[in-house]
Amino acid sequence: MLTRSLVLSAILFGLGVAGVVVRRNAIILFMCIELMLNAVNLAFVALSRAAGIEGQIFVFFVMTVAAAEAAVGLAIIISIFRHAETVDMKNFNLLRW
């Protein structure tokens, strides 16, 4: 079950990557990042079966960080939306040259 779980975690991570590359909606990009975080969490939990309780403790920390990140990130998205009336990342190309 351990190896299977690790493979599953890699697959979910890959899905998150695909989402980040393919989607342009800022909120969905964000959700893809959450998916990647969760894939990592799964790997941690699975590995905790091999290496001990520390894996689960790290998941705990990852979740805390994810919560903080979601709060700040969504606040940023809201202020972006207020400014531009959209969250489609194709309209935010100020980083160009």
Partner: peptide
């Protein structure tokens, strides 16, 4: 290369 599109950058990073 600098399209300004977040996805492209993410793609490059990945």
């Amino acid at each position: 290369l600098q399209t300004g599109q977040l996805n492209t950058y993410a793609f490059a990073v990945v």
